[in-house]
Write a protein that binds this DNA or RNA. Structure first.
Lengths: 155, 155
DNA sequence: TATCTTAATTTGTATATACAAGCATATTAA
DNA sequence: TTAATATGCTTGTATATACAAATTAAGATA
C-alpha cells in the first residue's frame, strides 16, 4: 500500500465521516443494548416521550431521517408496545405507552454511559467539541443544498 | 420540541456523526455519479488500481469495512468488468482490468470535484481539518476496542 | 503424514436507510 | 362546491453494511 493511498483515505471526508460513524454506531449499540433498542429507535422513543403527540414529519426533520425511515422505526416501536399512533385526518400523533415511558430511565442511563465512554477515550472536552463541530459541518452542508430528497415542505 | 431535546440531539456524537455521514455520503454520491460507481466502490477500485494484487483482507483493513462487505463490493466490480480475482491458494489477488484502469482519470476528477465542493462550503482549511479530526477520533475509538467483530488477524 | 488449529474468503441472513410511487387528506382556486 | 394541487404518511423495493457460519487452504504438531 503506497503512502499516497493512505493519505488519500485519511484526508477524504467521505471516508473519515463514514469510518467515524461506523465506530460510533458500534459504541452506541453496545451502550444502548440494555434498553433492548437500537440507538436510532431510542432517539425516536425519547422524542415521543418528551413531546407526546409529535408527528412523524417533525421527527424526520429533527432526526434528519427520511420519512419512510421514520415510518419503519415507528412500526417497530409500535410492535414492541412502546408507541401508539393516533390519527387525526392526514396527520398522525405519536404517543408513548406506559411501557414506553417506563423505559425512559433506562434510556437516560444508557445515554450517560455512552457519553461517558466516548469522553473517556477522546477526552471530555474533545468529545463534546467534536460533536459540536460535526453538527455545525452537517448543518452547513445541508443548508448548501445536500438534504434529503423528499418533496415535502421546504423546511 | 423542547430546547432540551434539541440540545441532546446536537450534542450527541451518535446523532451528529451519523447526520454528517449521511449528508457527506449524499455529496459524494453526486460527485462520483459520473463514474457510474458509488463512492465505496470507487475506493475499492482505486485501491486495486494503485496496488494491483492487493487482497480483500488488506482492503478491509484499510477501508475499515467488514471482509464480507469487501466481498460484495468486489463481486459488483467484477460483474461490471473493472476487477479480476486471481486465486493463489487461500489468498485472492485483486487486479484491475483495462476498463478499471481506464476509469481512473474519471475517478480522480470526481474526487477533486468532491473535495472542492465541501471545501467551498466548509472553508478550505476547515474542511481538511475536519477530515483529520474525524480520522483521529475514529482511530482512537477503534484502538480503544470498538472495532469490527471479525476474528481475523489481530491487526 | 495425519490431524489440529488458524486465517482468508464467501455465503446466508438481517438491519438501517433511502428513493420512488401510491394513497389519503387538506388547502386553494375557480 | 367542485377541481387542482400540495402535504403527510406508508409501501415496495433497493443498497450498504454487518455478523455468524461455512468453506477452504495453510501452518503447526504429534
Amino acid at each position: 500500500m503506497t503512502a499516497d493511498t493512505k493519505e488519500i483515505l485519511s484526508n477524504c471526508l467521505y471516508f473519515t465521516a463514514n469510518s467515524l460513524s461506523r465506530v460510533v454506531t458500534r459504541m452506541a449499540e453496545e451502550a444502548f443494548r440494555p434498553t433492548g433498542l437500537s440507538p436510532s429507535h431510542v432517539f425516536l422513543l425519547m422524542l415521543a416521550n418528551e413531546n407526546p403527540g409529535i408527528g412523524p414529519k417533525e421527527m424526520s426533520d429533527y432526526l434528519q431521517l427520511a420519512p419512510s425511515t421514520v415510518t419503519r422505526f415507528v412500526d417497530t416501536l409500535v410492535n414492541k408496545g412502546y408507541l401508539e399512533r393516533k390519527a387525526d385526518g392526514k396527520n398522525i400523533g405519536l404517543f408513548p405507552t406506559l411501557e414506553g415511558l417506563a423505559l425512559q430511565p433506562d434510556i437516560t442511563k444508557a445515554w450517560q454511559s455512552f457519553h461517558q465512554k466516548y469522553c473517556e477515550i477522546l477526552g471530555s472536552e474533545e468529545g463534546d467539541n467534536l460533536a459540536v463541530s460535526l453538527d455545525q459541518a452537517a448543518q452547513k452542508l445541508e443548508n448548501a443544498g445536500y438534504r434529503l430528497a423528499c418533496k415535502c415542505s421546504k423546511s
